[in-house]
Amino acid sequence: MTRSRGLQAAASRDPHLTIRRVERQQYIIERLHASRNRLTHQRLADELGVTERTIARDIERLRHSGVPITVVPGRGGGAIIENVAPAGPINLDVPEIAVLMASLAAVGPTVSESATSAMNKLATAVAPSA
């Protein structure tokens, strides 16, 4: 993708739709993580009030971003986040932490328990030493 094409695509996006998509994707991650069983696209679509195709696109974006979602097609299929070991320490510099905080602020740092927890951990990481 060329730089001008990327800027054009970004400029044509509705920021409200982007925020709704991020909120929806966060819900999908949290819902799949909390579930012990595969969840169908239809079930997630019903819970979120969107189409199955929207859920499929969201899940594909998440998978492409590295979220460990497994999708099993067909009858009895669905999506699941396999049991994953807890994340180990991540070394981020201040600009990386700031960009994550800005992203959380855009979505709403209290939109979910995960968002609130992440924001608190990031804020603690950059707090001045006493």
Rank of each mutant, 00 (worst) to 15 (best):
R31C: 05
H33A: 09
A34F: 01
A34H: 04
S35K: 05
S35A: 15
R36V: 10
N37V: 12
R38E: 05
R38F: 10
L39R: 15
L39E: 13
T40P: 05
H41V: 09
Q42T: 10
Q42N: 04
R43Y: 09
R43P: 00
L44D: 02
L44N: 00
L44F: 05
A45Q: 03
E47L: 14
E47D: 15
E47Y: 07
E47V: 02
L48S: 04
L48P: 00
L48K: 04
G49A: 06
G49N: 06
V50M: 13
V50I: 15
V50D: 06
T51G: 11
R53I: 11
R53Q: 08
R53L: 10
T54E: 12
T54V: 14
I55D: 07
A56P: 00
R57P: 00
D58H: 08
D58P: 11
I59N: 09
I59T: 11
I59F: 03
E60S: 10
E60H: 12
E60T: 13
E60W: 02
R61D: 10
L62G: 08
R63P: 01
H64W: 03
H64L: 07
H64V: 09
H64N: 09
S65P: 01
G66N: 00
V67H: 00
V67R: 00
V67P: 00
P68F: 04
I69V: 07
I69P: 02
T70Q: 11
T70L: 07
V71D: 01
V71K: 10
V72D: 08
V72I: 12
P73W: 01
R75Y: 14
G76L: 05
G76V: 07
G77M: 12
G78T: 09
A79C: 15
A79Q: 11
I80L: 14
I80K: 15
I80Q: 15
I81W: 06
I81S: 07
N83R: 15
N83S: 15
